[in-house]
Design a protein around this nucleic acid. Structure first.
Lengths: 140, 140
DNA sequence: TCTTGACCTCAAGGCGACTTGAGGTCCTAG
DNA sequence: CTAGGACCTCAAGTCGCCTTGAGGTCAAGA
């Protein structure tokens, strides 16, 4: 099985080498060793990088993503944790759906002022309704 | 109609005053004037802040959010732009759904190594399928 | 009038996620 | 053996989104 130079991974994953080095540094991916100075990546890293891309697209931090898939890309995590992440994602999806619907409504609503449109206000209110704790991490 | 001090807005919106000042500075919200030094906010700002929160939760930058709702909180934008944003959001939602399904699958799959599970690979591959340039950092 | 304290400004700091630059190393081809 | 270039390290810089801190102002109440 052939290993990949960082340049090859970079090209196939669509990420700059600097990003890959960074990911390795923080333990999100791992190389199998070196050829001289050069990191050698196993082909699986490409799949891992896809998972990482998915996680990012879904709004998770690299830290959280590491928490989902382990440093080796294999989810050796307790199933409960994974289900929890999935639930988190579900809530997130509902929020996005609410925003999408609001946007679509706004695009179609003939009301002169959206702030006065009942549907609009309802959509926004509904979106806020189930927002709970997971808010802004700060505080500390 | 009574106006709100920043502290009141802060409390009701669950955002620190510093964030509100920042939002005003970048033109995301606007105060109606001052009482002495104190900014006075119209009550509508609370609704605007909800929209902003929705946009953030959906993964948009403050810049993009400003682009959706205008500095006054009223979407005076061309409907096409709004529809476009909604479409963007739809794609985003699909990606998140894919990740959620992957996570759920992983939580339930009995395969010894997920990397070898066909379903897993299919889910990941499917997620990557329609990812296209949407370019990092939309700036000009 | 004086005090209180919620507000103000402005500059700097911080975090996540990288990028950039300078200067160095090593495989490979010729 | 030499040159080239893809790779390396490490420090510093960047961008978005705020927070923190120092020092200042003003409305209202005792």
């Amino acid at each position: 099985m052939r290993f990949l130079d960082i340049g090859e991974v970079s090209e196939r994953a669509g990420l700059p080498p600097s990003a890959l080095r960074y990911y390795e540094e923080i333990g999100l991916i791992a190389s199998v060793g070196r050829n001289g100075l050069r990191r050698q990546f196993p082909p699986e890293v490409l799949l891992q990088l896809k998972l990482i891309a998915m996680g990012k697209a879904a709004g998770f931090s690299l830290d959280e993503i590491a928490g989902m898939f382990g440093s080796n890309g294999e989810p050796d995590l307790p199933r409960a944790v994974l289900r929890d992440k999935a639930d988190q994602l579900d809530r997130h999806i509902r929020e996005m759906t609410a925003l999408r619907d609001t946007l679509r409504h706004v695009a179609d609503c003939p009301a002169p002022s959206h702030m006065e449109c009942a549907t609009f206000r309802r959509l926004v209110a509904a979106a806020g309704r189930r927002r709970r704790g997971r808010g802004r991490s700060s505080r500390g």
